[in-house]
């Protein structure tokens, strides 16, 4: 555990020691601000019955952030160490392979959390200037946050896996972006294919990331979605672990 925490700290520290880290934070803050403004403007034009969180997460900006930020965050995790050679010094210390994988993922996850902090400011603004307390119902916020975390975990674990496959950060980022966007685009299958009572429709519904986030932002925590996201995350982390460990039998 001691070693694990040391590694997580180093990972997080690494993000803040490089310009990339600040650049990601700045870009995400800009996007969040933009999407917030767009949303407020829409609401001043016509009042809406849809919860604030759902409105927010159905803007394209949200998806842009998740799809772009995750590869940008995780591209360095293994690829940079391999490129710099520090992977060798890391793996020759008495550290378990799974500890390294989990630490890299956890570090990226904490950084991802930091990215969403500006959202808290947006909430405060709404709370301060709106006349009723409805938009910030705690249950709704908690569900939304959970959705945000789960979705982040899926894309970040995918990013870690992509990064473990290569020495080049660019390749890692492109790979995780390509797979990530494919996963996301699968959501549209449920819109394109006309709904029928077949198992296919049910399947497309279940794997739709857009549906996921909409449900969470509405305040519904569907355990099927939770299980889906968690198992995808575990699958990618398992694959990463296998890649890291593969140097022992290659």
């Amino acid at each position: 555990m001691r070693v694990f925490l040391t590694l997580v700290r180093r990972e997080l520290g690494g993000y803040f020691a490089s310009l990339t880290g600040y650049l990601i934070i700045a870009l995400v803050a800009l996007m969040l601000g933009l999407s917030f403004t767009v949303m407020l403007e829409g609401m001043t034009r016509e009042p809406s019955m849809i919860p604030l969180t759902e409105l927010f997460f159905s803007t394209p900006y949200f998806w842009l952030i998740v799809l772009f930020a995750a590869p940008a965050i995780t591209m360095r995790s293994f690829a940079l160490e391999r490129f710099a050679g520090t992977y060798e010094t890391l793996m020759t210390t008495p550290v378990g392979d799974w500890q390294v994988v989990l630490a890299k993922f956890t570090g990226a996850f904490f950084f991802y959390l930091i990215l969403w902090l500006p959202l808290a400011a947006c909430l405060l603004v709404v709370q301060r200037y709106s006349r009723d307390a409805v938009p910030t119902d705690p249950g709704l916020l908690a569900a939304t946050l959970l959705g945000l975390l789960l979705l982040g975990a899926v894309f970040l674990s995918l990013g870690c896996f992509a990064s473990s496959l290569t020495r080049s950060q660019i390749v890692a980022a492109m790979l995780s972006f390509a797979v990530g966007i494919s996963l996301f685009l699968l959501s549209f299958l449920s819109f394109i294919i006309p709904p029928q009572a077949t198992w296919q429709t049910a399947l497309w519904d279940q794997i739709s990331m857009i549906n996921h986030m909409q449900e969470f932002a509405r305040g519904t925590v569907d355990t099927r979605y939770v299980a889906f996201d968690l198992s995808l995350t575990m699958l990618f982390l398992f694959l990463t672990w296998r890649v890291v460990e593969s140097r022992r039998w290659k």
Binding site: R2, A17, T86, T89, L90, T93, P94
Partner: peptide, 20 residues
Amino acid sequence: PLHLDMRVREYLKFRARLKG
């Protein structure tokens, strides 16, 4: 190979902790 973004003392401490 070293972590070039770290300070000397910080790096050595990090490594010492990794080594248990």
